[in-house]
């Protein structure tokens, strides 16, 4: 059994909207093991994005505790959380969230800058990763000059820059046509199978969720079903 990398216990997230209180997450507990590929599914408003935000320490829960590598986040200040995100989690968003005035390469270099890595090293790493995701000839283009699929590749390259253990993907194919969507999923599978990354992905499409090893079904802020898919196994060799 591999070790637990994210451990969430009794997570409640409440949003107060005027007089009414809304429990986006209602007593959710969840474990993510190292090198697992988990998909979170559910209809819109089920709380899946909120869960992803809490698990990736972008958002603090109202109550409950999240342990990242066994460390509780409630004891950490915002700067420490930022450092944990920067080091251990790579983000891929539905809307790509690239900075449009920076080139592809500069976007990939950015997380490395926050880790205090010197410029020449940052350039080298970024060039390598962009080549890996098939964008060797697009490095100096700005996001607005790239197709949706290419932008998402830049985002994946940025997520990989600091070589994190976990890749968090929020509807990674949501804004893409089916061909690019398929290519992006192939890339994510490759990260899991070949590079041994732990993948946590939110989607509302069953077809996309089927790439995962386990699917968490969420409804009204609660986990209603924890489904294990049998088709894939991680081989020891695949660990980088």
């Amino acid at each position: 059994m591999s070790e637990i990398i994210i451990d969430a216990k009794n997570i409640v997230k409440t949003y107060v909207m005027g007089e009414t209180k809304l429990n986006a997450l209602d007593d959710v507990s969840f474990e993510l093991k190292k090198q697992e590929f988990v998909a979170i599914m559910g209809p819109s408003g089920s709380g899946k994005t909120t869960l992803l935000d809490v698990l990736s320490v972008l958002l603090r829960p109202t109550s409950g505790e999240v342990f990242i590598n066994k460390k509780p986040i409630s004891k950490m200040n915002d700067n420490e959380l930022a450092l944990i995100r920067g080091r251990t989690i790579g983000f891929v968003f539905q809307t790509f969230n690239l900075i449009n005035r920076l080139t592809a390469k500069e976007n990939v270099m950015m997380p490395l800058w926050f880790q205090g890595i010197p410029k020449n090293k940052r350039e080298k790493i970024s060039e390598e990763i962009l080549t890996d995701v098939g964008l060797a000839d697009r490095m100096h283009h700005r996001p607005t000059e790239l197709s949706g699929g290419q932008r998402q590749r830049v985002a994946i390259a940025r997520a990989l820059a600091v070589n994190p253990d976990i890749i968090v993907a929020d509807e990674p194919t949501g804004n893409l046509d089916s061909v690019s969507g398929k290519q992006i999923m192939e890339l994510i599978n490759e990260l899991h199978d070949k590079k041994g990354k732990t993948i946590l992905m939110v989607t509302h499409e069953r077809e996309i969720a089927d790439h995962a090893e386990r699917i968490i079904h969420l409804k009204d802020g609660k986990i209603i079903h924890n489904e294990t898919l049998k088709k894939k196994k991680i081989t020891e060799k695949s660990v980088k």
Partner: peptide
């Protein structure tokens, strides 16, 4: 604002 969010997501501390 969005840029600040992105930077924070990818590891920028409040101090940075």
């Amino acid at each position: 604002t969005r840029e600040i969010g992105i930077m924070k997501a990818v590891g920028a501390t409040n101090t940075i």
